[in-house]
Nucleic acid binder design. Structure first.
Lengths: 230, 230
DNA sequence: CGCCGGATTGAACGGGTGTTTAATGTGTTG
DNA sequence: CAACACATTAAACACCCGTTCAATCCGGCG
């Protein structure tokens, strides 16, 4: 049960059929959304709808397999290039490699749909960003926060959500641009404003922040996290 | 053609049936997503699926009507409270009024799905934010930017996308919390980190920004927008 | 060889979809 | 009252969906 579905035919001149189906599924799911029919995926893989069920049990099973594959690819590539912090930059550099574009598109779809994978991805991004920001703080290049966990979550949600929304709006609207080109345009569009905001903020003084800190008595709920202020 | 579909029965003790259908549609679309069946919407409105078609022509027509209604409500409420700038804050205060919660939920769904309404909403938010940020700049409370349009777009996408993603992940996951409570939790969660970021930035110095400005020759494409720097 | 097990297919099933159509009710008007 | 227009319904239609099933192909093995 634990090691089910492996090494049945094994040897084959071309890729295994199950892998071909999975690739086609990631491609179709990513491009058309999760409501695509099994038959559409099957024809894209050059097989029949029944065979997809035969290999993956059900459509839900196929999605689960896609999720695992995408997550595995993401994790593997992440260890290769563990710098860069922001998820957007990371996914951008990943999308540069044409081979991984379908996976990235699938991940964006998953984030848009908001299922289990979305939550896993977000939590993972938050964990990564936590470590990255903490390192930056320790190195003295990132300002400390009154509530580091909240800031990390905020930054992860904003960056990821902004990216997903941008692709939801611009993704299908524009012409026959390749996914790579689209991603490059997105990064170009946000880099300057993001750097400005991160480097200089948006407001000229701290009055709004101070007003809020005075208005709200407790930082989150514990006692001494406020020592990081100023 | 221009004034089609108005004043047919007009007088009625309770609300018009078409309005009841539309309210139910916004409710169901917002809660269950746009793939809900017409019959589900119809039963929620206490009518039959055929009647929905009879009044709105098709499911697409119903969605168009929902879009227009939601957009109209949003515009009307916006003029009532034109302060507060950020779209999140605005929608939060709108969601406070129980009556408007379904519309807000519908708008979130639309932004998540990314159709025409999503683009309209985003562009409108950008326009509003443009005016708001310009006013703040003129009043001396908001820092000028090297590329004001790009910054406005960036802020609008980040704020809106972050909110949509947060609700995609937390929306159905948690228990029987009311939409109001959920929105309050979101605002509570982001207010401090957002104010911190806007007031103090994230990085301790400008080296990353300066590196980027040196690496990239032209600001966007025109000539003198860089005078706003420093 | 003969059998067997898995890969693969094509057709069928049951259910859900959006939409159409004919019939029924119902209030307004001549 | 008769006639018409409209709201409303229930049933039917055609289609797509995920899934099942029986049959077929095919390679490995006793």
């Amino acid at each position: 049960m634990a090691s089910a579905g492996v090494v049945p035919g094994e040897r084959d001149g071309d890729v295994l059929t199950a892998d071909r189906i999975l690739d086609a599924a990631i491609e179709r799911f990513g491009c058309d959304g999760f409501h695509v029919g099994l038959r559409s995926i099957a024809t894209a893989a050059g097989v029949t709808a029944g065979l997809v069920i035969h290999h993956f049990g059900s459509k839900a099973g196929l999605r689960r397999a896609c999720d695992e594959h995408a997550l595995a690819v993401m994790r593997e590539q992440k260890t290769k290039a563990l710098t860069d912090g922001t998820a957007a930059m990371f996914m951008a550099q990943l999308a540069e490699v044409e081979q991984f574009a379908p996976v990235v598109r699938y991940l964006l779809r998953s984030l848009q749909a908001g299922g289990d994978l979305a939550m896993t991805l977000i939590e993972q991004m938050i964990t990564d960003a936590e470590a990255y920001l903490a390192a930056g703080e320790a190195a003295g290049v990132i300002r400390p926060s009154r509530d580091r966990a909240a800031r990390t979550r905020y930054l992860a949600y904003q960056a990821t959500g902004g990216m997903v929304l941008w692709f939801s709006v611009h993704g299908a609207a524009v012409g026959p641009e390749s996914f790579r080109t689209l991603f490059r345009r997105y990064v170009e569009e946000i880099t300057l404003p993001a750097l400005e905001l991160f480097s200089q903020g948006l407001l000229v003084d701290r009055s709004m922040l101070d007003d809020y800190l005075m208005y709200v008595p407790d930082p989150p709920s514990d006692g001494d996290a406020a020592t990081a202020a100023r």
